[in-house]
Nucleic acid binder design. Structure first.
Lengths: 179, 179
DNA sequence: CCGTAAGTTCACGAGGTTTTGAACACCTAT
DNA sequence: ATAGGTGTTCAAAACCTCGTGAACTTACGG
């Protein structure tokens, strides 16, 4: 099972960040990790989101206690997913980052892909399995039925996930207006 | 009876199981893994499900090429989740396992718990964060709003997941009647 | 009871993923 | 052009999770 289970005991949140900021960034980190992203994707986005002004890589690195390389890679990811954008800040030669507000978009988007890929593969494999089982006599009807049942189940799963993602996105854009 | 089979190349599914069975068990393994369980949870359950008759640990171990210990632990988990039950088989001193049909139940159940735990923690952390931020002046209103927004977002997430799980369960029990 | 087979537990290691940091490449301002 | 700060890459390190198998415990049959 993935990492969303626990945070180590007392979990002293990052040292020199105000406690409340640490709580926010870590929370978002945990949630995002639940969805199969890296914890630090969430932490970086959250930091940018509550700071509300462009930050350069160096500040992020210090505040979240990450390495140079990590910040570079994480922010590239976030940028690619359009939840963070990179801007020039007057009076500085460094890039600065700002948070976009719709990160639910990102979650649903990436989930969409991952899930699609999975379901596609499973569906064809099960179809093959059914065909093979049917050819090799000796397999009872009830067994064939069970394979078929699993196939419809895969379909239902996809459907359900789609619904989930649609409502999620809907709910969040509602929220966005709200602010 | 050493294994002479040595297949290079792509994705050779477990060797001595009929190909179609391997396809089925591996597929279920992949799906279940997506949901944050172990791959072998899915494989064991699927094997029992298609075989349709009680199997003892030894058979499972051989068919899926697992270790003694693994089979023991995996089947304990499955049993705890009520997707497999342990029965006495006449004429044998060993326990035998059979698959229950509703494993969507299990997914939703366990997800329910894990997700609940997570959301609960995140909610209180964000509540604390908001309180702290408010106390330490210097924090602008807009920032407070953003924290609040994240809180409602956590709530929405929970809600969405609930909906998803309900529909999933519903769809599946439909399917169950269907057989 | 005893002997044997079945079942459980757990320290360890293999395998996989994330982070690090040093080397390298790229800008920008002078 | 070039110096110095910025940004990226990637091999190695740290980390985490799972499966293994030997040691142990339990249960059954005789």
């Amino acid at each position: 099972m993935k990492g969303y289970t626990y945070r180590t005991g007392d979990s002293e949140p990052s040292t020199h960040l105000p406690l409340w900021e640490a709580l926010v960034t870590d929370s978002v980190g945990d949630v995002i990790e639940f969805w199969g992203f890296k914890r630090n994707h969430g932490r970086v986005w959250a930091l940018l989101y509550i700071r509300r002004e462009p930050m350069n890589a160096r500040q992020i690195q210090e505040d979240l206690e990450l390495s140079k390389g990590a910040v570079s890679m994480i922010s590239r990811d976030l940028e690619q997913w359009n939840v963070v954008s990179r801007v020039r800040h007057p009076g500085s030669s460094a890039w600065h980052f700002v948070a976009e507000v719709d990160f639910m978009e990102m979650i649903t988007h990436v989930l969409q892909e991952r899930e699609g890929e999975l379901i596609r593969r499973v569906s064809t494999d099960l179809k093959d399995a059914e065909k093979l089982a049917r050819e090799s006599k000796e397999v009872e009807q009830e067994t064939l039925d069970r394979i078929k049942r699993m196939r419809t189940l895969a379909g239902l799963m996809q459907q359900a996930l789609d619904i989930f993602m649609k409502t999620a996105r809907l709910d969040v854009s509602d929220t966005r207006d709200l602010l």
